[in-house]
Structure formats: C-alpha cells, structure tokens
C-alpha cells in the first residue's frame, strides 16, 4: 500500500499518446495532495526509451514480447499483477481505446473501485468527471484503497507532463502471459483520402444537424465558394455521408485550421478536444446551450438551412 499515483502510458507504434502526458500532469496534482510519487507505468518490448521525457518520479517498465503491441488480455494480466502487488493510491488510465479496454476489467478482477471520464482533480483530491456529452460534471471523493480512474483530455496541459530530465527507469517483473485470448493480426493504415484535413486552413464542418446525405451538398457549395474543405463529426461519418478521412474527433483527426466553421455540431468533448487548436471557431447551432458555443469564438443561434445558402451566395459575391 502506497500513496503513489500510477499512470498507464499509452503508446502505439513507437508514439506515446498526448493523453498520457495529460495524465502525467494530472498524476502530479494528485500525488502532491496524497504525498506520493508519480509513477509512469510503461508496458512494451524494447520500448524503454519512450520513457525519457516523462514528467514522473519513476518509470516502471515491463518488457515482454507479447507486450510489444497493445492487446487487452496481455495488458490486463500484466497490470493486475502489478497493481495487486504494489497497491498504489490510484491508477490513471486513458478513457481511450487502450485504457477503457483495461480499466473496467481490472475493477472487477481486483475488486477495486473505478471512476471514469475524470477530467481533473480538485486540490483536496476529489475527482471531477465530465458526463452527458460535457453537459454535467460529477464530483466525489476518490474511492479507496486503490482507485482506478479513466481520464478524458482537457483538464491539464500535456506539456506539463513532459520533462527535459529523464526519470529513473526501473524494470518490473512481468507475470506469465499464457493462454491469451486476444491477438493482434495487423494494423490497417488510415484511409488517406483526397485531402488531409489536419493540414487544411479552412474547414466547413458538419454534424448531426445536417440531417441527411443530400444536405452535405450545401456544405460542399459553401466550401467551394470560400475555398475550404468539408469535414464532419462522428454521426455524419457513421451514416456514411462523408468518407472516414474527413472525420474530426477522437478516432479521427485533430485539426488546426485558420477557420473552423461548425454547422449543426453540438461540440461533445471528444469533438471539442480535436478542434481546440483552430485559430477561429465559428459555430451555428439551433441549441443555444450546445457546448460548441463554449469553444467557439463566434456563434450563431439558428438553423443552418435558413443561413447556408444565403451565406454561400454572399461569399461568392464578395470574392
């Protein structure tokens, strides 16, 4: 039993996730209150050097050929062993494709409490979670003895999780990884598509509010008039109205255009996070309380369909 805060580092093909640095920064805040150390937990194979810029007091490195790539089963086994033995005060996971596959299973396996979607911790160590598409925050005492926590981005700066001074890296034992039920076959590269939206300076983005596939044309027309490119949020891509290469968000691209013009996008946290680096966000939404207006610089409360054609016309005239 210790007051240490463990942070599970997420990495894919040699690249550490930004979210892991955010979690190291969160871990620091929590460790200061608890009086423990920040311990980065790195699982991999020949991947020790990934730990060199972690803002952590210590890196625990678990090396095994079967940990070279993430699979839920192997990670669960290795972490169950480590957490069971060390009993830290908390373990932070990403609320992500890696962390979320692991944290819930460990909660049941080790009979440890789990808090999900945590965005930040208060100074006295309470968790603050973001739920209901960012519309509600839930705060509470961090449960004990060891709290498992999945974290969403937004509460801390990833740069605060980086350090120029390399932390000490200690190898930790890996339990027998036998009878694994999940195996990686291969990676499938992202669809490249015709454009790379992460490099486009002017994005016309559509969300659920665009209502149907035919209406995409309205966005295309505006994009053409102004010299931009159309992209969309998850519901639009899932419906097959736009190609996957145009997806902005958690599983898609993070973008940083000069102008991000969001039409009918509510601005759920996963989407908001992916557009934060834009210079200017302009949003149109019928719901005045849509979270997109909290990240947008300019907003229009109204119906896209009343506005977009007349806007396209006026843009054409103004050229």
């Amino acid at each position: 039993m210790s007051q240490d805060i463990y942070v599970l580092i997420e990495h894919l093909r040699g690249q550490v996730a930004e979210l892991s640095y955010t979690m190291l920064a969160a871990g620091r805040e929590l460790a200061q209150g608890a009086g423990g150390n920040v311990v980065a937990v790195l699982l991999g194979h020949n991947a020790k050097e990934l730990g060199k810029d972690f803002a952590a007091d210590k890196v625990l490195y678990l090396d095994h050929a079967l940990l070279a790539d993430f699979t839920s089963d192997a990670y669960q086994k290795a972490l169950a062993d480590l957490i069971g033995k060390d009993q830290p005060r908390a373990v932070l996971f990403g609320n992500s494709s890696i962390g979320a596959d692991v944290a819930s299973v460990l909660s049941m396996r080790l009979d440890l409490p789990l808090v999900s979607s945590c965005r930040s911790f208060t100074q006295d160590g309470k968790f603050v979670s973001q739920i209901c598409g960012g519309k509600i925050m839930a705060e509470g005492e961090l449960p004990g003895p060891t709290a498992l926590v999945t974290m969403v981005p937004g509460g801390y700066q990833p740069d605060q999780g980086r350090s120029a001074a390399a932390p000490s890296i200690t190898e930790a034992p890996v339990p027998a990884l036998e009878a694994l039920r999940v195996a990686l076959s291969k990676y499938i590269e992202p669809e490249t598509g015709d454009v790379d939206i992460s490099k486009e300076p002017l994005l016309i983005a559509v969300g659920r509010g665009i209502q149907n596939k035919d209406n995409i044309e309205l966005a295309e027309n505006l994009a053409q008039a102004i010299g931009g490119v159309v992209c969309g949020s998850r519901p639009v891509i899932d419906q097959g109205w736009l190609a996957t290469s145009r997806l902005v968000g958690k599983s898609g691209k993070h973008v940083k255009p000069k102008i991000y013009f969001a039409m009918g996008i509510s601005g759920a946290p996963e989407h908001a996070e992916a557009i934060m680096q834009s210079d200017t966000i302009i949003a149109i939404n019928t719901d005045p309380k849509a979270p997109i207006f909290d990240v947008a610089k300019y907003g229009v409360e109204g119906d896209i369909f009343d506005l977009v054609e007349v806007l396209t016309e006026k843009v054409q005239q103004a050229k």
Binding site: D69, R181, I188, P190, T244
Partner: peptide
C-alpha cells in the same frame, strides 16, 4: 474484428 485507434488507425485483432 477491427478496433479503432486515434487518427484513423485500425487494428485487426483475433479474439477467441
């Protein structure tokens, strides 16, 4: 199955 990772990367995985 196909599992999604950030940035559009997919992993093909085999599960018993």
């Amino acid at each position: 199955l196909r599992k999604e990772y950030p940035g559009g990367l997919l992993a093909e995985m085999e599960v018993t």
